[in-house]
Design a protein around this nucleic acid. Sequence first.
DNA 1: TCGGAAATTGTTATTTTATAACAATTGTTA
DNA 2: TAACAATTGTTATAAAATAACAATTTCCGA
Lengths: 162, 162
Amino acid sequence: MFSLDTAASPPPDPRQALARADALCQERGVRLTELRRRVLEILWNSPTPLGAYAILDVLREDGRTGAPPTVYRALEFLLEQGLIHRLTSQSMFTGCRQPGSRHDGQFLICQDCGQVDELNNPAIEELLRAEAAAREFEALAQRVEVLGRCPDCRRGAIDHAA
Amino acid sequence: MFSLDTAASPPPDPRQALARADALCQERGVRLTELRRRVLEILWNSPTPLGAYAILDVLREDGRTGAPPTVYRALEFLLEQGLIHRLTSQSMFTGCRQPGSRHDGQFLICQDCGQVDELNNPAIEELLRAEAAAREFEALAQRVEVLGRCPDCRRGAIDHAA
DNA sequence: TCGGAAATTGTTATTTTATAACAATTGTTA
DNA sequence: TAACAATTGTTATAAAATAACAATTTCCGA
């Protein structure tokens, strides 16, 4: 038996992701400035989502001066362009695995290690849209997050118990 | 044509909600203290979700002394008992329309007026569970929120344009 | 290529949300 | 009623996000 709906996320490769972002921004005529590109790179280089202040720390390690608004503005741009997602339950940000087609995504978030898997199950999206439509509610964005434990951490926990 | 999956939320009635909460806590042998009950009441009396500090303001109008931890602890209890929900994208809290059976719910949140409709569509819940299971992810909680405009605000917007 | 408007980034200060740590009080039970 | 647990009060601080304005860079037309 196999899943009918969604493929697994492609392995996140920072270089590819940045090249894709470059291309998308060029197409769209928007500017992926050095700062914005660097923030995106920082996110892609991290195995787990990062908060704005963690990103700011890395920028400062770069030698760049900056304050929270610097980061938040870059994040705002990246969100608008669909290059990253915000995990609202965590106040954190992560690179989008399917940029290009704007979407909100669905996330499996490990509460132990923080790692995140991005789903894009159209059936879930569609059901939510339908629920909204049935109530004459104009749906503009979806936030779908599943909190729990990833396979690695489950195995780790089993090891500890053994 | 009609929806197959979920009924509309019952009209929120503070008195009923509080009576139900009393009963549930009694059954469970947990204490719905005066403070906790009052916080729940404040939430039910509000037409829209409230943040912790808005709740604190009302408590102070009551004449009660208190600080943020007072409110957050009461909220924590109410969340544990499934008597309220947290809207993570808003950092706000709202009374649960179907207490008794623990669930995470799904929410339609109006970005104009703040009003919230609670869904409990089992198909959405099930799809998320299935996605998690397919990836061997242990799902412990779900956060599902749709942001947009409620029917009232859509009509209001049309009126303005007209 | 120069100058001015728009976009981007820098900077300072503040607001909003949430929690840590410990003290005081209340409730429960032996 | 003493002792213990649960709840609430209090002070202080951490963490996340934004407001407001200044400086800089980019873009584009004259």
